[in-house]
Simulated assay, not measured.
Amino acid sequence: MQQIKNIRLLIAASSILGISLLHYLTPLHLPMLHDVFQRLYYLPIILSGLWFGLRGGLTASLVVSIMYVPHILFQWGIHPSLELEKYLEILLYNVVGGVTGLLSQREETRREELERTAKGLEESYRKLHEQADLLIKTEEQLRRSERLSALGELSATLAHEIRNPLGSIKGTTEILKDSFAPGEKKYEFLEILLKEADRLNRVVENFLGLASPVRVEQNRCDIMLELRELVAFTTAEALSMEVKVRLEPAEIPPIKGDTEKLRQVFLNLLMNALQATGTGGEVVISAVGPLHTSENQPVIELSFADNGQGIDQEMLERIFQPFFTTKKGGTGLGLAITQKIVESHGGTIRVTSTKGKGTTFTVILPA
Rank of each mutant, 00 (worst) to 15 (best):
K256F: 09
L128I: 11
A132L: 15
K185L: 09
H79G: 03
T348Y: 03
E188P: 00
L62I: 12
D178I: 01
L316V: 09
T277D: 11
L28H: 06
L194N: 09
F304G: 06
P165F: 06
T117M: 14
I319D: 02
L40T: 09
D198C: 03
A336Y: 08
L239Q: 14
L365Y: 05
A250R: 02
E115C: 01
Q339A: 11
V63I: 15
G347S: 04
G308F: 10
M315W: 04
D312E: 15
R8Y: 08
T109H: 11
L114E: 10
L158D: 04
K137V: 01
P249E: 14
G347K: 03
F324T: 13
S212N: 13
V299C: 03
I255P: 08
L102C: 02
A150G: 13
T26E: 12
E237P: 00
Q75M: 14
D258M: 02
K340Q: 12
H79P: 01
P80C: 02
T109P: 00
H23I: 02
G281I: 12
T331K: 12
T59F: 06
Q3I: 10
Q339D: 05
I252F: 03
K244M: 11
S353M: 06
R143G: 02
T279W: 08
G53P: 03
L33R: 04
N6T: 07
E343P: 05
I45D: 02
G183T: 07
D198P: 02
L247M: 12
L148G: 02
